[in-house]
Every structure is written in structure tokens, then in C-alpha cells.
């Protein structure tokens, strides 16, 4: 099935203190960005487990986006360092298992950077569009 702009589904896990606030700012600033992401707010990016990322991909979403505070700026001082290890593990396992690790992206977006949030979302959506449908999307036997 051919992809169209609204067909792409990206699940985004955003930390409450930085990237979610940046998304909120992008909204209140009336910035327009690709409408493909579905945001799940988490209190800290380290709440994300590799299982979340892998489940999203196995169930057929085309991309997984994880957003957190910049290193050194974590609301809980070191949560994002743990998050980075978990995302690195998820990407490595995805790659070993034959899933496309390019569909996973981790970005640090501070609360005050609404325009950067919009830019990163656009960029990642375009990248996913290039990759095409996640083959797992219609895979019944997975």
C-alpha cells in the first residue's frame, strides 16, 4: 500500500519536563508540524523501557521517537543518561532481530525550544516516509 502523508504513524514518548513542554510550546506558538506523531507523556525519559520501543515496532508503528532533557539538564539530574543506555540497547536489539533500528530516534529537546521540536518532528517524519511502511504493520504472524 502506498504511503501517504497521514498514513505514517509515529509513537512519541516525551518527558514531562522538557520535550513535552517543548511540544506544548510549539502548539501555543501555533507552529505547524507533521501530524503523524502520537504523543505519550512520561515523567522522565528513563521511564521508557526497551520493551516499549520493541512493542511499538512489532505492533506496526512506522517510527518510535523518544524525547528528553538535554544531558546535564534532567529534572531528576541523571534520568536521561539511563534513558540513553536503554534506547541504545533497544536499537541494538532491534538491529540484531531484523527490525529497522533507523525507525528509532532519541532527541534531547529543551522546554524552551518549541521551534526545534517542530523541526525535529518534521525531519523524523520525512525520514520515516523515506523508509516506507514498517513491514511488521501488516504482519499477522509476528
Amino acid at each position: 500500500m502506498a504511503n501517504n502523508e497521514t498514513d505514517i504513524k509515529i509513537v512519541a514518548f516525551l518527558c514531562n519536563w522538557c520535550t513535552f513542554t517543548a511540544a506544548d510550546l510549539a502548539g501555543t506558538s501555533r507552529l505547524k508540524y507533521a501530524p503523524n506523531i502520537r504523543i505519550v507523556k512520561v515523567m522522565c525519559s528513563s521511564r521508557i523501557e526497551p520493551v516499549f520501543i520493541l512493542k511499538v515496532l512489532l505492533d506496526g508503528a512506522d517510527g518510535v521517537f523518544i524525547g528528553g532533557c538535554a544531558p546535564g539538564d534532567c529534572h531528576y539530574s541523571k534520568g536521561n543518561f539511563y534513558a540513553r543506555r536503554k534506547v541504545a540497547l533497544a536499537k541494538t536489539l532491534a538491529k540484531s532481530a531484523g527490525l529497522d533500528s533507523e525507525r528509532i530516534r532519541l532527541s534531547w529537546i529543551p522546554a524552551s525550544e518549541g521551534p526545534r521540536f517542530a523541526h525535529v518532528v518534521n525531519e523524523f517524519t520525512a525520514h520515516i516516509k523515506e523508509l516506507g511502511d514498517n513491514p511488521a504493520r501488516r504482519e499477522v504472524y509476528i
Binding site: 541523571k78 543506555r85 536503554k86 540497547l89 532527541s107
Partner: peptide, 14 residues
């Protein structure tokens, strides 16, 4: 997963 270094794994973040 119970440890980290402040500078590491740069290829996984942006």
C-alpha cells in the same frame, strides 16, 4: 542498565 557515563553512546542521540 544500572550505570552510565556522562559522555558515551553519542551515535544514539541528537
Amino acid at each position: 542498565l544500572l550505570a552510565y557515563a556522562e559522555q558515551e553512546l553519542e551515535e544514539f542521540e541528537d
